[in-house]
């Protein structure tokens, strides 16, 4: 394009500036503000905003809910990564390798929960677990396993796994499709050659499929970890609000309760910073752990 310098900069300003301004106001400022507020003791009314330095962070260290919430956050991460990856990988291999006629049906069905609202998923599963009208206890009763029935979400030990199940339920489809994309790109002759060399299907899976779709596996794991650390509290807040007691509390739901229910905004902001630090550190560690030479045949 032949534009004078001035015209070019006017055009660039037109393209970039308005967007950048709203982005700074509604995305950058709140994030920096989150850091800033974490140094104050503040109940929301501006008259009693007191600078307390690292006071909120000291309080984080002595708050007994925090370690529990961190552990729960990482339990979710592990359960989701393993649950989703194992099932998604199995389904992806099944749907690509064995040319099933009804494959499109499974793809459409498995993906659908990915686009459902977390609130709807949370409420729906709350009723699936309902002690009286729920499906889970209903199935157990018809199978004669009356003693296994329990109020799943009200049970100190079972509440957390009960929330992890819908998280996996809602997550599989996307990652299955992601992995399927990788598998269909693997040249067919690699499998033919392996077959001739007498490699079993299991060996083919570990020696050919897994190494060649490693980039997709890695992306999926990192994506699951980030979205879980930054977002699994929505399901928690909808289904149990952290209860019973603090059995299912995670950092995000605790932040919401502290800030918007107890009006301890400074402390809430400090929890937000903790979530930021945790998720950035986790991603760095993951990048390092999942580093693996790229395989090419």
């Amino acid at each position: 394009m032949v534009l004078s310098k001035k015209q070019k900069y006017v055009f660039l300003t037109f393209c970039l500036l308005p967007t950048f301004i709203v982005f700074c106001i509604f995305t950058v400022y709140p994030m920096i503000g989150g850091l800033y507020y974490s140094f104050f003791d503040w109940s929301g009314t501006s008259s009693v905003k007191e600078f307390i330095g690292l006071g909120n962070y000291q309080k984080l260290l002595s708050d007994s809910v925090i370690p529990k919430a961190i552990v729960n956050d990482y339990i979710f991460v592990f359960v989701k990564v393993f649950g989703i990856m194992i099932l998604a990988l199995f389904f992806a291999v099944a749907l690509t390798q064995l040319r099933l006629k009804e494959a499109p049906f499974y793809r459409i069905v498995f993906f659908f929960p990915n686009i459902m609202s977390v609130v709807v998923i949370g409420i729906l599963w709350q009723f699936i677990y309902d002690p009286n009208i729920g499906i889970v206890n209903g199935i157990l009763r018809t199978m004669g396993l009356e003693e296994w029935t329990r109020p799943w979400l009200g049970d100190m030990t079972w509440a957390l796994p009960s929330i992890a199940v819908p998280a996996i339920w809602a997550g599989i489809g996307l990652f299955m499709l992601l992995l399927m994309g990788g598998i269909t790109d693997i040249p067919k002759n690699l499998y033919e050659a392996a077959e001739i060399d007498g490699a079993s299907e299991w060996q083919q899976f570990w020696r050919i499929t897994v190494p060649l779709i490693w980039p997709q596996i890695k992306t999926s794991i990192i994506y699951i970890v980030i979205t879980s650390l930054n977002g699994s509290f929505v399901l928690v807040q909808v289904m149990t609000a952290g209860g019973p007691g603090i059995a299912t509390e995670v950092l995000g739901s605790y932040l919401y309760q502290k800030a918007f229910e107890d009006f301890k905004f400074g402390y809430g902001a400090a929890i937000g910073v903790l979530i930021l630090v945790a998720s950035l550190l986790t991603v760095i560690v993951l990048q390092f752990l999942l580093k693996k030479e790229k395989v090419e045949y």
Partner: peptide, 29 residues
Amino acid sequence: FKGNEIILNTYLSSMMIPSVLGWIPLFFL
């Protein structure tokens, strides 16, 4: 133009930051 990369990376890296962090300031804003 100068700063092209910086602006792009600012947008992209903001996707990594948990939005929870910004809620409290956003509410007061």
